[in-house]
């Protein structure tokens, strides 16, 4: 296999090097890529969408359709991970022994043969491989997480003016919940963001995006033509485009956040949701 791999790599590499010989020089301002389409984007974006971050404007408006599917890709990755890994309650063998921990004293109780403690405030169910969360990590993360979340929301909201946008913000938002799961416990994170909520939020996020597009369609313009939203938002078409971009970025953010958490939960617990990383 190694030799085959080497041969393939050498052949492909030779082809690529052969091709690269004809490339325009790196960072050449006169290369076709820099002179054909991009001047239009750079010079007209502000007029047409009033968004200074050209990348955001192109991403969510000129090529908004790509981005819709990009969000769909993430969504489908979440669904696939769930579909592949999640072990439903029916298939899951109920463990013989259950572990509970008394919240106030920290005493761990072991119950055999399917005895249960009814859900109460005093006891919480824990996993067999439970390790007490580390005090320093826990406290540090506890304080960090809200700021991380705020920063994530800032990134989503300011995608128009600075780098960032729905995707980055969504990832950071998801990472904050993942951080919670890492520093505390998967159960804590899941209690905060339940599985069902994540699953629905994923779909809702993409739905916001596609739904905005479809709304434009219902308003008698082409799909994703945000200027149609001017009627609804009572602004001029260019501002409508700007607002439309924000709306879809929010959708992207929600979808990405939920999906990241969903994937993490499934991967780290191998679909059992009992214990995570």
């Amino acid at each position: 296999m190694k030799i085959i791999g080497l041969i393939i790599v050498v052949v492909t590499g030779a082809l690529l090097i052969y091709a690269a010989a004809d490339f325009p020089a790196w960072s050449d301002p006169a290369s076709p890529a820099s002179t054909y389409l991009s001047p239009h984007f750079i010079e007209k974006t502000m007029e047409e969408t009033s968004v200074p971050n050209i990348v955001t404007a192109v991403l969510a408006d000129y090529r908004g359709f790509d981005t819709m599917f990009e969000t769909t890709v993430i969504f489908s990755a979440g669904v696939v991970c769930f579909f592949l890994l999640r072990i439903s309650r029916r298939e899951e063998e109920e463990p013989e022994t259950r572990y509970y921990r008394h919240v106030l004293t920290g005493v761990t109780i072991q119950l055999k043969e399917g005895y249960k403690i009814p859900p109460s405030d005093d006891f919480e169910r824990i996993d067999a491989a439970w390790t007490p969360p580390d005090l320093i990590i826990k406290t540090g993360c506890r304080i960090l997480i809200p700021f991380v979340q705020l920063f994530a929301l800032y990134v989503i909201a300011h995608g128009h003016h600075s780098p960032g946008g729905g995707f980055q913000g969504g990832v950071i938002l998801g990472a904050s919940i993942i951080l919670l799961a890492i520093s505390h416990d998967l159960r804590t994170a899941v209690r905060r963001m339940s599985e069902k909520l994540m699953a629905i939020l994923c779909a809702v996020g993409v739905f916001i995006y596609a739904g905005t597009g479809a709304l434009c369609l219902l308003l008698k313009l082409n799909f994703l033509d945000y200027s149609a939203l001017a009627e609804v938002l009572h602004v001029d078409p260019i501002t409508a485009r700007s607002h439309g971009i924000l709306i879809v970025e929010i959708g992207v953010g929600i979808a990405v956040m939920a999906t990241m958490i969903w994937i993490y939960n499934n991967v780290s617990s191998a679909g059992r949701y009992r214990q995570g990383l």
Partner: peptide
Amino acid sequence: NPLPHVLMLTAIVVGVATLGVALAL
């Protein structure tokens, strides 16, 4: 030129999605 950046944002996202699926598998 902003266009390649736009395209690559999408590609990164696709990469993450593929990564998630591959790890699940």
